[in-house]
Simulated scan of single mutants.
Amino acid sequence: MISGEIREADPFELPEWLGETDVVWSADSGLRTGHRVAGRLDPAARGDGDRLVCDLLAVDEAYPTTVVGNDVRTAAHRAWRHGQVLVLDIDDRLTLAVPGREFAPDLVLESLSRLARAVGASPERYAVLLRIGGR
């Protein structure tokens, strides 16, 4: 189970540039490395050093131990069912909690599309840079 403090984050309290400019999410680890993919959000056209860590977390992984408690898992599934993504703060890292056990490219794209809509941006303004990784 994830150790550390898990809090729900309010998308309206995230940096304004997430909804105002083109954004690139870049994976810092490969998709095949497990239930948590470390990454970051960068403004595509700004060189002023803005950057926001943003991880992806597949909340249904249960072996050898559950990833998160049932309350977080249920909230992630509820948000997803309503066309949203659960935005968390885990140890001061923005984290998108997504139903599933692992990530495929389509799930990553859908997760970031939902984040874009949550901050008032068009998903057309978001791009994704993936790393393959190994099992």
Results as ranks from 00 to 15, higher is better:
A97C: 08
V87P: 00
N70C: 06
R46Y: 13
G134A: 14
A121R: 11
G30S: 10
I132E: 15
E5Q: 05
R125H: 03
E102R: 10
P105Y: 02
W25E: 02
V119S: 04
G39Y: 06
G30F: 03
L109N: 14
R7T: 15
T65D: 14
H35G: 00
I90P: 03
A58K: 11
G69I: 03
L41K: 04
W80G: 10
A97R: 00
E61N: 01
T66S: 13
G34N: 05
V108E: 00
E5W: 08
L14C: 08
V128Q: 10
V108Q: 04
R78L: 09
R51I: 12
G133W: 05
G100N: 01
E13K: 07
A27M: 14
D55K: 02
V108D: 08
L86T: 04
V53Y: 10
L96C: 00
D60G: 00
H82N: 11
S29N: 11
S122F: 09
V67E: 14
T65W: 05
R73H: 13
T21H: 14
A97L: 07
D92W: 03
D91Q: 11
G19Q: 05
D48T: 07
D92C: 05
G83Y: 09
D60I: 00
T95E: 05
T21Y: 08
E110L: 12
L109E: 13
G34A: 07
P99F: 10
A118G: 10
E13T: 00
L107F: 00
P43H: 14
L41A: 08
I6W: 09
L96N: 02
A121S: 15
G69T: 01
R117D: 11
E102P: 00
V87T: 14
G19V: 00
S3N: 12
A116M: 05
G134V: 12
